[in-house]
Design a binder for these strands. Structure first.
Lengths: 341, 341
DNA sequence: GGGTGCAGTTAAAACGTTTTAATGGTCACA
DNA sequence: TGTGACCATTAAAACGTTTTAACTGCACCC
């Protein structure tokens, strides 16, 4: 009997509980939320009524009253996510797992909003009190929509637009790590491949690359490839570059989808990796590890990053003050077969 | 001006829109939802009022009235997920991505409930109108909780308990695929490693393994390892088996975390893979691909499986009739270095 | 005895939407 | 002219909480 609810029966409400316990609904609410003192004996009566009726609070009603959804949303910038396909999803999912765990430890659920054609529809149908935005582009459609909704937003990775806060992804250090590594293993002629989108980390990578190239006397070559062309686009671009520059002995390809494309081009050209050409990429995900040889990459410690971002967002949602900028653990180089023989 | 909302300003409601458009709130609701006919001219007035005020419907209020949260939850059986760590998360995340996409295409968001200590608290604070349950164990704590809440539940993988429906993960075919493959590449003495938990797919794997072993005259050996001991437990168990059975020339290890543990044991024993011992696992995820040599595994087509499950669940939520059992695309063997030289 | 303060409780309002039943108007048909 | 059907609209109720302000007793203090 007790605790059981028959199928189809209407769920018990706070008034049912109140009636059974012989108190008013307000007292039940106070007893359950603990917001006000309730007599010990009354509380006991309420508790047993709750158990007997199998009462579960109606979240929608609570949300309407309190104005909170107990939910945060994780968005990924549409364009790239689609373009980079599974790789970007890996990146996103790694963040999602950690963010969900952190959020739930604070009694908030994470809703996952994958890249989708119509961001506006997604926003409209999903209740949430805060948003996590993964590496937004300069003109990210979500930025405007979230701003219009006046909802706290935390970006993962440096953001151009107006966000409440952002967690650093250490673009500069990551770039330096990879560039210095390529130099250390002896590469002296390696181009940088980046996408054409307005991503902050492209800008940073390019800046560091050019600076370092100038220092060591390397002629810089920056190949820009539309992200939407995926692996194939990168392969074509690299093939062209190899033909024009046979002295090439390395490739710096931050976007992993483009990195595997580049590997394909190298195979076609009959060049050995890492013997003749060394290759390094940024995100140490499935693509990087599944390539043969596996690609040297960087451990961005996304779980820590996501936890930091989530906690910051929840602080904001709860109305606490919060810094506008959070540092991340320093990225660590993960050396693999593609740069060491 | 239009479409702009100043920060801190209270959000416009349907009443504000109604007043501005000179109609009643009910008409606004009808115009927006399209549930009833509304004169073309009034609809236009309402639309422009909506734009001017930057009106966004309050989901909580709508949810309270309609009884729908526009949300489904994805749960993963607690014990295993924790035990198998990142590998299980990979599995879960692959499903999550596809489920989220499918759900969103039907205007429903996916909330991600990662393995957590207190499942009951998770359930209480998260509003959802349906649940997706990944490979529940026989006594899965979520099963009871979801049943008590009387919420439609769809399991991914055969389920023991009471769920509204389940989508097959083709345990038998998967087992056959792997067993036959090991036999085909010449293995004649390979034990089966499985966990101790009450998972349906352990039972099926064991049954098929014993049957096939009897057919080909192989002495069956089933090693059961507590999932909670992870890689190390599997490594110890395999080391022991190898010492007692030097004739071992293969390993069938469905759980990928245990498979990588087994690989470690083989390395320690100085046995070459695939030369002396062939290894096969089930889930073709990061662990399988990142191992050296990469592990032969099975493509379970989780994206299709997740999409099927999600659509079934949403049908149930919308009150449609729905089959209790869905087939999945047949699993395909992915042959890798661990079984072919 | 009249005020003050406190602790526990309550009645009623409020949150913002959807839905129901009722309303007035127009049109076609007898 | 009356009758019914239909259409667009509306007023009001309903959803299930939380919160506010009021209200009890009751003890304590001048």
């Amino acid at each position: 009997m007790s605790g059981q609810v028959k199928t189809g029966q209407k769920r018990a409400t706070v008034v049912d509980v109140a009636r059974l316990a012989g108190v008013s609904p307000g007292t039940v609410s106070n007893a359950l939320s603990g917001k006000r003192r309730v007599d010990e004996e009354t509380r006991a009566r309420i508790d047993s009524a709750v158990r007997e009726l199998g009462y579960v609070p109606n979240m929608a009603a609570r949300g309407m009253r309190t104005g909170r959804a107990n939910t945060i949303a994780l968005f990924s910038s549409m364009a790239t996510a689609v373009a980079a396909g599974p790789s970007k999803l890996g990146f996103l999912m790694e963040i999602a797992g950690s963010a969900a765990l952190t959020a739930l430890s604070r009694n908030v659920a994470l809703v996952l909003v994958p890249p989708i054609r119509d961001p506006e529809a997604a926003l409209r149908n999903v209740p949430f009190d805060g948003a996590l935005l993964v590496e937004p582009t300069r003109d990210d459609p979500f930025l405007a929509l979230l701003a219009a909704r006046d909802v706290p937003t935390v970006a993962i990775g440096e953001a151009h637009g107006a966000v409440s806060a952002h967690v650093d992804l250490n673009y500069a250090q990551t770039a330096d790590l990879l560039i210095d590594h390529l130099l250390n293993v002896g590469s002296r002629n390696f181009p940088l491949l980046i996408g054409t989108g307005a991503r902050r980390y492209y800008e940073v990578f390019e800046a560091r690359y050019r600076q370092r190239a100038a220092q060591v006397g390397m002629t810089p070559a920056v190949l820009r490839i539309d992200e939407a062309e995926g692996e194939a686009g990168a392969a074509r671009s690299v093939a062209r570059h190899l033909a024009a520059h046979p002295e090439t002995d390395g490739l710096l390809v931050p976007l992993d989808a483009q990195a595997t494309g580049a590997m394909e081009a190298l195979r076609q050209a009959g060049l050995s990796v890492p013997g003749e050409v060394r290759v390094a990429t940024r995100y140490d995900g499935l693509r990087a590890r599944a390539e043969t040889p596996a690609l040297t990459a960087v451990d961005l410690q996304l779980d820590t990053v996501a936890a930091t971002a989530t906690n910051a967002l929840l602080d904001l949602v709860e109305g606490m003050e919060c810094r506008a900028h959070f540092a991340s653990p320093l990225p660590r180089l993960v050396v693999r077969g593609s740069t060491e023989g």
